[in-house]
Write a protein that binds this DNA or RNA. Sequence first.
DNA 1: ATCACTTACGGGTGACGTAAAAATC
DNA 2: GATTTTTACGTCACCCGTAAGTGAT
Lengths: 281, 281
Amino acid sequence: MIELYLLEYLVKFHELGNLTKASEQLYVSQPSLTRSMQKIENELGIELFNHTKNKITFNEAGELLVKYAQNVLKAHDLMIEKMHDYKNSLSTISIGLVAPGPIFKYGNFLYTSFNLKNVITSIKKEEELIEELLNEKQTIIFINHLFDDKNIVCKKCLEEKLFLSVPKSHFVAGMKNGIYFKDIDGQSFLMSNQIGSWENIVQKHLPNSKFFLENNDNLKELVNSSIIPSFVTNITMNNRLSDERIYLPFLDEDATMPFYIAYLKKNESKLENFLKTILNY
Amino acid sequence: MIELYLLEYLVKFHELGNLTKASEQLYVSQPSLTRSMQKIENELGIELFNHTKNKITFNEAGELLVKYAQNVLKAHDLMIEKMHDYKNSLSTISIGLVAPGPIFKYGNFLYTSFNLKNVITSIKKEEELIEELLNEKQTIIFINHLFDDKNIVCKKCLEEKLFLSVPKSHFVAGMKNGIYFKDIDGQSFLMSNQIGSWENIVQKHLPNSKFFLENNDNLKELVNSSIIPSFVTNITMNNRLSDERIYLPFLDEDATMPFYIAYLKKNESKLENFLKTILNY
DNA sequence: ATCACTTACGGGTGACGTAAAAATC
DNA sequence: GATTTTTACGTCACCCGTAAGTGAT
């Protein structure tokens, strides 16, 4: 058996054409390379090089060996790469959501509950999330309805409630008990472009309104410097409170969005810490 | 870099399911295998096994690694095999002949002149041999005519002369000076089935004769126990002489067959010993 | 004189085997 | 009690680096 380190030396020597240069790149001494090449020749019992007094070059057999040695090293490197990928996948968790609320609420716990390097979150339709959970493309999903399946655990974990955010000067600012969608239909709104299933709800109940979609990075700043109404929820409110604005709860039933957490039964033990944390929260 | 011996241990362990059995087949101690498996785990930084107190089994990552490790070992084995094939080809010489005479005459020198494991001889038509020599499918060919080519060396080396072999009772047995083909046309003959270009000659000059073709293994015995005429040559005569028979030279010009040895100029140095031996013989 | 390869020599890492312990069946 | 894995420990192989040697440019 010709060990990989020898094949590595051989290929590097072939690449650079002389032992001295190869030894520098391999961080070994040059005599060590001489010995290694001799060792390969002895082990195979085939002359691989033309040895002259101060020059060593590959003969036909040596060139042939290099070709195959490269394949062996490639196979080894692929193995290492795939195992690292696998390891990475073990420390990666995929969270799927119908709306971003649960991430705002629970995001921090993901990192404290696991030894995670990567958290992948994606907002998708409920049916798609369920399919991906069953295919193990998602580890945890947050959906709006109870889903019953023998392989899945699904529990209610959260209610997100919608609030209207208006400047104090707005004509509805005095309605402290809350308002209904119909009271403000036709107005224009600043709104996040990543709200998932909330989008259906506001468009259904505010059919005559216009929405200025912004990504989350810009939204808060825009809202604070504008008199246009916008939305917050009980979850996002902590981050977005502004003294200049009044926050009025929507009183419609649809303005309360339930979240159900779902995961594969077989992952229950892995997720134990996280589940304990969020369900008691 | 995970060295091949570790991968070999891993795969054998996977194959046999426990370290003790694997250690027996690998001719190492069992603790050595324990250490090796730990070493792989450490090097990859991934848990590969379920360690219980007296049982160690592969987990998902371990199974994955085995798959890739098998590929690496396969690549290594292929490399070794191909290099051995190459080595073997270096110690193989192909001799092509238009007729078997030169092999009878020089065969032994092939083995004493080279470090040969394999000598491949084949009897073919002259044109085919020349083409194969140019394609390097033949190392040396023996043909009946001088062939001129800038890459080829071609020299006369041998004359083979045909003799009739008849029982003492045969009607031509008294013609001590020799005979002509025409004197015995119409007779039946025992003859080797591997005579190459001699076949054309006897069939041309003995158009009314019948030939019983036998392989060389059987021929001598058959001839000795029969009264049927047969052939020998100055080369094969040494092996086939029988007191019961008379050997008469054919006097026709065609009964003397010249042989020319031909080989590629670039191989001259490799063949030096052999050439020196046979050309002076 | 410099460069490139080889040989010689001494040192340290690490892979090995033996022995013993721990745990399961 | 037998089997299997793991830990402990001492030994030895072998791979390495330094230094010196040999030719070639």
